Amino acid sequence: MNRSLASLLLLASLVLAKPTLVPNYGLPAPPVYPVAPPKYAFEYAVNDPPAGNQFGHSETRDGYRTDGEYFVHLPDGRVQTVTYYADQTGYYPTVHYKGAAVYPTARAYHAPAPAYHAPAPAYHAPVYGHH
């Protein structure tokens, strides 16, 4: 009987409880933004010859569709460009290369000549007093 009465009182307290609000400590309410499909565009490029860096990226988005392109100058002299679009079904890139790869000529390898070193003399303890 006591268990059922305790359960009933607990249930009644949960039903009658008022939700408590978290205090905002006098801060203004956060802004409410209208729900709208995302829309943006950006572009940047880096050209730093002393460091050997040259790359860039541009992208636009309107709703679920995003279109973009990025490029990088590769160490072998080519330019790699990736053109892409993305939507709710996935990401679809197309990769292109411009120019021909150029590699420095490798120097011929010459193995060092083996060097012979005479072994160090064995240690001999000094002999004291001759007979």
Rank of each mutant, 00 (worst) to 15 (best):
A51C: 07
T81V: 04
A120F: 06
G52T: 00
P93Y: 05
D62H: 08
Y103L: 05
P28D: 02
V22W: 15
G63Y: 04
V46E: 12
D62K: 09
G56R: 05
V46Q: 14
G99C: 05
P28A: 04
G68M: 02
L16C: 09
Y64M: 13
N47E: 13
D48N: 07
L14V: 02
A29Q: 08
L5I: 13
V22P: 15
S4L: 11
P49S: 04
L8C: 14
Y116D: 06
T81M: 05
Y109W: 00
Y103I: 01
V22T: 15
L9S: 08
Y84G: 04
A111T: 03
A6F: 12
P93H: 03
G56I: 01
P31F: 01
Y84D: 03
D62G: 06
A113Y: 06
H96G: 11
A108M: 10
Y128N: 09
H117R: 08
K98S: 14
H57W: 03
L27N: 13
A17S: 01
A122K: 10
H124N: 07
P114N: 06
T66D: 02
H130R: 12
Q80I: 07
A51Y: 08
V95T: 12
A12E: 05
Y97R: 04
H117P: 01
K18Q: 11
A45Q: 15
P114Q: 07
Y25A: 10
E43L: 08
S7W: 11
Y40G: 01
V79L: 14
V35M: 14
V127T: 09
G52V: 01
G26H: 03
H117S: 07
S13D: 03
V95Y: 06
P104Y: 00
V35Q: 15
T20K: 10
H124T: 10
P75L: 04
V46K: 12
V79E: 11
L14S: 04
Q88F: 15
L9A: 13
V82G: 00
V32W: 08
E43D: 11
Y91K: 00
H130C: 09
Q88P: 11
L11Y: 02
Y25K: 09
A17L: 02
S7V: 13
V79H: 11
A12W: 06
P93Q: 01
